[in-house]
Design a protein around this nucleic acid. Sequence first.
DNA 1: ACAAGTACTTACCCTTAAGTAAGCAAGCGT
DNA 2: ACGCTTGCTTACTTAAGGGTAAGTACTTGT
Lengths: 111, 111
Amino acid sequence: MDFNKELSMQACPVSFVMNKIGGHWKPIILYQLMSGPKRYSELKRAIPTITEKMLIQHLKQLQADGLVDRHAEPVVPPYVIYKFSDRGESIKPVLNAIAKWGYEQWSADNI
Amino acid sequence: MDFNKELSMQACPVSFVMNKIGGHWKPIILYQLMSGPKRYSELKRAIPTITEKMLIQHLKQLQADGLVDRHAEPVVPPYVIYKFSDRGESIKPVLNAIAKWGYEQWSADNI
DNA sequence: ACAAGTACTTACCCTTAAGTAAGCAAGCGT
DNA sequence: ACGCTTGCTTACTTAAGGGTAAGTACTTGT
C-alpha cells in the first residue's frame, strides 16, 4: 500500500524527490515554468496535449509541495499566474543537471 | 496513448530522464547500486519490500536503457551481479545532486 | 439577451503499474 | 533420491494514474 511508498521515501532520498517532480506531467510543467512565471492559459497552450484536469491537479500538488506559488488577480476574466517558489528556485539547478544529462544521452542515442 | 509520451520525451529532456530513472522502484534500485556492484539476492535483501517480479523487471529495463550491466557466472547455484554501466556512471552525479536536494528538503520539512 | 473568455470542477471510464502467488531449472550436499 | 539454493518466469488480481467530456461562475463586448 502507501506504507511501502512512505518507507521508500524515508529510505531513499531519490525516491523522495521523484515523488515531488516525477510522473508524466510534472517535469513538463516545471520545465515550462523554468522560463519564467506563466498564467494558467499560457501553460495550457504551451503543453497542448495536457488536459485541464491534469494541469490543475499537478499545479495543486506542486503548490502543496511548496515548489510553486499561485497568484490570482481578483479580476474578470480571471488572471492567475504560477511561478517557482523560493523552495522551487532551489531545485532549478537539479532540474538543469537532469535536463543536461538527458540532452547528452538523447544525442548519444541518435548518433 | 504512447504517442503523447513519445512527444513529451522529445519536447522535455527532464521527462526523458524521468522515463529512465523515475517510477516507484528504479530510484531505489539505482540508489543501492551506487554503493557498488550487487548480486541479485543482495538487492533483494537490501530492498525487502520489493517483489521479485518488480526487481527483475526494472533491472531488465535499466539494462535495456544501457544504465546497468548484468554479469552472470555459469555456476550453480547461479551467481549474477548487477552494476552501473559506463553510461550509468555518467548519471551518478545527477543522482547525487537529486539525493542532496532531497535530503536538504526532507530536513527542512522536519524542523 | 447572448456568446465568448478564463480558471477551474466533477463524474465516469480505461489503461498501465504494481502486488500475489505459484512454478521451473540445474547442480550440490546428505 | 530428496531437499536446498539462486535467479528467474508466468498467470492472475488489484490499485493508481491518466483521459474524456461535460458543467460552473463571473463579467465584458455586441
